Amino acid sequence: MQIFVKTLTGKTITLEVEPSDTIENVKAKIQDKEGIPPDQQRLIFNGKQLEDGRTLSDYNIQKDSTLHLVLR
């Protein structure tokens, strides 16, 4: 499925993911596309910070959902 990740600069990254993917996996995909190390990434969905060990389906993230990427 496709999800979107919006950065603070207003750029939107499109990712191909599975609901069973962990947040860690998603961060690795963002690193592949953008070169941002996962330990600098914080992903936010519906105002909640997403934890590495959880999956997209844990957070009820579905296709065409938009996550927000904050760098630390």
Score class of each variant (00 low, 15 high):
residue 1 M to S: 10
residue 1 M to A: 12
residue 1 M to Q: 12
residue 1 M to Y: 09
residue 1 M to L: 04
residue 1 M to T: 15
residue 1 M to N: 12
residue 2 Q to A: 05
residue 2 Q to P: 07
residue 3 I to P: 00
residue 3 I to E: 00
residue 3 I to A: 01
residue 3 I to M: 04
residue 4 F to G: 10
residue 4 F to M: 01
residue 5 V to S: 01
residue 5 V to K: 00
residue 5 V to Y: 12
residue 5 V to N: 00
residue 7 T to F: 08
residue 7 T to E: 10
residue 7 T to Y: 12
residue 7 T to N: 02
residue 7 T to M: 10
residue 8 L to I: 14
residue 8 L to K: 07
residue 9 T to L: 01
residue 10 G to V: 13
residue 11 K to N: 14
residue 11 K to Q: 05
residue 11 K to W: 04
residue 12 T to Y: 11
residue 12 T to K: 11
residue 12 T to W: 15
residue 13 I to E: 04
residue 14 T to V: 10
residue 14 T to W: 07
residue 14 T to Y: 13
residue 15 L to D: 00
residue 15 L to F: 09
residue 16 E to Q: 09
residue 16 E to M: 06
residue 17 V to W: 06
residue 17 V to T: 07
residue 17 V to G: 08
residue 17 V to K: 00
residue 19 P to I: 09
residue 19 P to W: 11
residue 20 S to I: 10
residue 21 D to F: 14
residue 21 D to M: 07
residue 22 T to Y: 05
residue 23 I to T: 04
residue 23 I to W: 03
residue 23 I to S: 08
residue 23 I to Y: 15
residue 24 E to G: 03
residue 25 N to M: 15
residue 25 N to L: 03
residue 25 N to G: 11
residue 25 N to A: 05
residue 30 I to M: 11
residue 31 Q to T: 05
residue 31 Q to Y: 02
residue 31 Q to W: 08
residue 31 Q to H: 10
residue 32 D to S: 04
residue 33 K to D: 15
residue 34 E to H: 07
residue 35 G to H: 02
residue 36 I to Y: 08
residue 36 I to A: 11
residue 37 P to N: 08
residue 37 P to L: 15
residue 37 P to G: 09
residue 37 P to F: 05
residue 37 P to A: 03
residue 37 P to V: 11
residue 38 P to F: 11
residue 40 Q to W: 10
residue 40 Q to A: 13
residue 40 Q to R: 03
residue 41 Q to F: 05
residue 41 Q to L: 14
residue 42 R to P: 10
residue 42 R to A: 13
residue 42 R to Y: 05
residue 43 L to S: 00
residue 44 I to A: 10
residue 45 F to E: 01
residue 45 F to N: 10
residue 45 F to R: 01
residue 46 N to Y: 02
residue 46 N to G: 09
residue 46 N to F: 09
residue 46 N to M: 09
residue 47 G to W: 03
residue 47 G to A: 10
residue 48 K to Y: 14
residue 49 Q to W: 09
residue 49 Q to A: 14
residue 50 L to N: 00
residue 51 E to P: 03
residue 51 E to M: 05
residue 51 E to G: 13
residue 52 D to H: 06
residue 53 G to M: 14
residue 53 G to S: 09
residue 55 T to L: 03
residue 56 L to D: 00
residue 56 L to H: 01
residue 56 L to I: 02
residue 57 S to V: 07
residue 57 S to G: 12
residue 57 S to M: 10
residue 58 D to Y: 10
residue 58 D to I: 09
residue 58 D to M: 08
residue 58 D to S: 10
residue 59 Y to A: 06
residue 59 Y to I: 03
residue 60 N to E: 08
residue 61 I to V: 13
residue 61 I to W: 01
residue 61 I to F: 07
residue 63 K to G: 15
residue 63 K to Y: 09
residue 64 D to E: 11
residue 64 D to N: 14
residue 64 D to W: 08
residue 64 D to Q: 02
residue 65 S to F: 14
residue 66 T to N: 11
residue 66 T to Y: 15
residue 67 L to G: 02
residue 68 H to D: 05
residue 68 H to M: 08
residue 69 L to S: 11
residue 69 L to W: 03
residue 71 L to E: 02
residue 71 L to G: 10
residue 72 R to L: 14
residue 72 R to P: 12
